[in-house]
Amino acid sequence: MLVLSRKKGESIVIDNQIEVTILSIDAETIKLGIKAPKNIEIYRQEIYQAIQLNNQSAAMNKNQLQTWIKEKNN
């Protein structure tokens, strides 16, 4: 993990296409501004994890359904 110190108004650039700017710092909260191409998806970590879990659950259910269909047809 790369660790950087930035002040309000300062930015970092990732892969020449994503810019992350520190907008404000209040006690334990930092507001970030992110500029990125529209084709790059950006999620908060907890939302990303929920999406991944939901996708895994859907894939498992699909596999279970396919197994059930095969058993029923035999």
Rank of each mutant, 00 (worst) to 15 (best):
S5G: 13
Y48W: 08
M1H: 04
P37I: 07
K62D: 07
A50S: 11
T21S: 12
K62P: 00
I18Q: 02
S11F: 04
L23S: 08
N73R: 14
A27V: 00
L53E: 10
I51D: 05
W68R: 09
I47N: 08
V3T: 04
G33E: 11
I25M: 12
Q56R: 12
L23N: 13
A59E: 15
Q66R: 08
E46V: 03
L2S: 13
N55G: 00
I42Q: 08
N39K: 14
A50M: 10
I18M: 03
I14G: 06
L4H: 05
K7M: 06
R44F: 00
L23R: 13
E46T: 11
T21P: 04
N74F: 04
E10P: 00
A36H: 13
A27C: 12
I30F: 01
L53N: 14
I12Q: 06
V13G: 09
Q56G: 01
I69C: 06
N54R: 14
K38R: 15
K72V: 04
K62I: 03
I34N: 06
I12V: 15
K38W: 02
S11V: 02
K70E: 11
V20F: 08
T67C: 04
N63H: 12
Y48L: 08
N61E: 15
V13W: 05
E41D: 09
R44I: 01
I42M: 12
T21N: 09
T29N: 14
A50D: 14
I12M: 11
S24V: 00
I34Y: 06
N55L: 11
K62N: 06
T21A: 08
A50T: 10
E41Q: 09
L2Q: 12
Q52D: 08
R44H: 08
A59K: 12
S24T: 06
V13Y: 07
Q45D: 12
T67V: 04
N54F: 06
K38G: 10
N63S: 10
I40H: 04
I14T: 08
S5F: 01
K38M: 10
S24F: 00
Q45N: 13
L65P: 00
K7W: 02
V3I: 08
R44A: 11
I30R: 11
I34Q: 11
I51F: 04
T67F: 06
K62T: 01
N74M: 14
Y48R: 12
A58I: 05
E10Y: 02
I14H: 04
L2T: 05
Q64V: 04
Q52P: 01
L4Q: 14
R6K: 15
R6T: 02
I34P: 01
K31I: 05
S11C: 05
E28Q: 15
K7H: 09
L53H: 11
E46W: 06
A36N: 13
N63P: 00
N16L: 09
I30G: 02
N63D: 09
A36F: 03
Q56W: 03
W68N: 08
P37S: 06
E19D: 07
S57F: 01
E10W: 03
N16K: 14
I18F: 04
A27N: 15
I51C: 06
I40Y: 04
K31W: 00
I34K: 10
N16V: 00
N16E: 13
N16D: 15
S11N: 12
N55T: 05
E41H: 03
L65M: 13
N61K: 14
Q49P: 00
Y43E: 10
